[in-house]
């Protein structure tokens, strides 16, 4: 099984960090192989940014994502550029505070998560990426909750651990609710 995940947004949103958290959870705290590659511009904030994660039971040769099974879109630009690259029936998680216009007639499953607003309520928009990751976890069931929590703590400064775990829980619960509604 080879699973391709792409997260995209702009520099500063923690797109690459979210990809790393996911890949670490699968690879170090799970029993899968995982590779994360990234693409960003020369600017430190504001430019287009994407993080690609491949998870597999087998050795991973080609490390890049060509047709993602899952897309996390955290900006309108990312949505416009990548929504149509999803596999047929693929899963799209979008930050509904950032992606305001959606295309019609795409054969995909869309989950809208107000990640930025949820993060605002936690008084720090910087954790919107972890809110999305929480939603990702409950919607996709791809990684164990405990594994991803450990990997989140590995990937953030110690003093922000609590905040990030709170963001994860909020996202997780929101995702769970969305999934229930879809059924």
């Amino acid at each position: 099984m080879r699973l391709e995940i792409r997260a995209a947004g702009f520099g500063g949103q923690g797109i690459i960090r979210a990809g790393l958290m996911l890949a670490t959870a699968a690879c170090i705290y799970g029993d899968k192989n995982a590779v994360e590659t990234q693409s960003y511009g020369p600017e430190s904030r504001g430019g287009a940014c994407k993080s690609e994660v491949v998870i597999s039971d087998k050795e991973i040769d080609f490390p890049k994502v060509s047709k993602p099974d899952i897309l996390i879109a955290m900006s309108q630009e990312a949505y416009n550029q990548y929504a149509h690259t999803l596999k047929q029936g693929g899963t799209l998680l979008l930050d509904s505070d950032m992606v305001l216009k959606q295309k019609k007639n795409l054969d995909i499953q869309v989950f809208e998560i107000p990640a930025t607003k949820i993060a605002e309520k936690l008084k720090n928009t910087i954790v919107a990426n972890v809110v999305m990751l929480g939603a990702f976890t409950s919607i996709t069931n791809l990684v164990e909750v405990e594994a991803i929590k450990k990997s989140i703590l590995d990937n953030v400064p110690k003093k922000t651990g609590k905040l990030n775990l709170a963001a994860f829980e909020k996202g997780y619960d929101y995702g769970k609710l969305l999934k229930k509604k879809k059924r």
Binding site: L20, A23, C27, I28, N33, A34, V35, E36, T37, Q38, I60, P63, K64
Partner: peptide
């Protein structure tokens, strides 16, 4: 650059 920036086990 891909190998340099890639994360893997």
């Amino acid at each position: 650059e891909i190998v340099g920036h890639m994360w893997e086990r």
